[in-house]
Design a protein around this nucleic acid. Structure first.
Lengths: 284, 284
DNA sequence: ACATCATATGTAGTAAATTTACAACTTATC
DNA sequence: GATAAGTTGTAAATTTACTACATATGATGT
């Protein structure tokens, strides 16, 4: 992967002249990536083809390709890693760790989403007569956020925190309605019951939950996200954020499906807010 | 620094053909670094010199130098760029774009947080007798989420969506209380009024809002996050998620400050949920 | 020690890629 | 509608990288 390491490791496999090249590159790699093969050959005191052969020995296609690999190795990149916060971490450390862990989790989540399912979910949502969003605990705020987004679309949207209201609302659902249930674990009993009630009334049940969970089994369509568990703090963190992004994606798909005029309508909704705000200058 | 970011930002300075090149590169940067200038020109439907001019406009010496920069950006761990969703994007494209834009925004947000302010905020929160979280619109769900987190800490927490309840709640605040107000723009009139009421009652007002906004001016302490605006969809997206991460950070700081025994308490809270859930096997 | 083979290195020529110079074409402005 | 500023493309020049071949070096076996 890292070509600089590879050079040091492969050292014994190089020929005498190739080793000269290796030395020069290791000594000042920054210069190397900005040199032509001729310059580098002269610096190393060898011929151009030798440099080329050196590159090939490192499994690159040739000199330009080698430079690309070298440049990438030099890019001081620390990819995001899931690092747990520890007891003695100061504010700078835990802030950094939380940001990075979240981003690492999102990267994993990103790769786990199934586009076809998303597309089908958007289909169902656009055709729905009424959309309900329910979640409990940490997922309640996700449902809340979904309400906020879909409410702007001028579609009947329902959101309740109260499980009795949720149940009653599902009792009134019909074939044309979509019920979106949000739960990271998918093991919250009352939410599973709600899924059953909704399906009993022929509503389409969409689960934003983990694959194979009890809730998933009750759903017509499951949007699953694979998010590395953040068990350390006993609080859901990354999972919730991945769910929100999924909501964003669904909302975006929804608006795109509705076309241009619809988006102008969205702008109007936003403009309506103007009266409740101070204008941009900051004057009242 | 990151050349992909640079491309998106300089977009307006490009000419028509140069923009074509930009699009192709942003669409598949991995392919771009392995293409010759001729191939890339053909892919973009422009001439070779245009590609060259495109590179120069980005302050690189030429095409090979540009490729080097591009390779470094891609290796940098963050190939994330703020790209706007477009009308004809399919589900695969907008999903990708939303994930990447969000992550690009988080990267920017991460660099904009001020550790000292966070530390002071955690101080204030740990010392508070009562903590209130208020937000409106999209920020309501963030406040909701904060409630969920801090509620577990066995501290008196307050959260209302209703602005009258918010006002009344603030009327009852005292010197020992902290009121956290969440608003991306910081220009929501009623939230600014609430800040004034809270301060009138000697409460500590903490704003999660943008720097220099009307709301910020009314706060005792401002946690500002710089998040690239995502105006295309007329919906707040990245800002909200950055706010949530900030809540995570504050909550984490809070638990760390409280020490070990406290965290055992958190575990107990979580264990309490067990009764409401199906166990891990998935059996009822 | 010498012949033979294999490997390593360099030279020169070739092919490819990049850049430059200039001409044709758009687009904005008066 | 003429002129100027800016864009884009064509073709030639230049730089860069690669290939084929020749020479050199070194190892191995007789």
């Amino acid at each position: 992967m890292n070509i600089l390491e590879k050079i040091t490791q492969h050292n014994s496999l190089f020929s005498k002249s190739e080793r000269k090249v290796a030395e020069i590159i290791l000594a000042n790699p920054q210069t190397a990536i900005h040199s032509s093969i001729a310059t580098l050959a002269k610096m190393s005191g060898v011929s151009e083809p030798t440099v080329n052969r050196f590159c090939r020995r490192l499994d690159t296609k040739g000199y330009p390709d080698f430079k690309l690999h070298l440049a990438q190795s030099l890019a001081n990149g620390t990819p995001y890693v899931n690092r747990h916060v520890e007891e003695n971490d100061g504010p700078d450390e835990y802030t950094k760790k939380i940001f990075e862990s979240t981003m690492a989790s999102l990267e994993v989540a990103r790769q786990s989403v199934d586009i076809n399912t998303i597309n089908r979910a958007v289909d169902l949502l656009t055709q729905a007569q009424k959309i309900s969003f329910f979640g409990l605990g940490a997922s309640a705020s996700v449902a809340h956020d979904a309400l906020n987004k879909f409410f702007r679309f001028n579609v009947p949207v329902v959101y309740f925190e109260d499980i009795l209201m949720q149940r009653m609302s599902c009792m009134n659902c019909g074939e044309e309605d979509v019920v979106v249930l949000i739960s990271h674990t998918g093991r919250t009993k009352s939410l599973v019951e709600i899924a059953q009630i909704a399906r009993g009334n022929d509503a389409t049940v969409m689960g934003i939950t983990s694959k194979g969970s009890p809730l998933a089994k009750e759903c017509n369509i499951v949007l699953s996200l694979e998010v590395p568990e953040d068990t350390d703090m006993y609080m859901p963190m990354a999972s919730r954020i991945a769910q929100l992004i999924l909501i964003d994606i669904l909302a975006t798909g929804f608006t795109l499906r509705r076309g241009n005029k619809f988006r102008e309508n969205l702008k109007r909704v936003k403009d309506t807010l103007r009266g409740s705000r101070f204008d941009k200058r900051g004057a009242p």
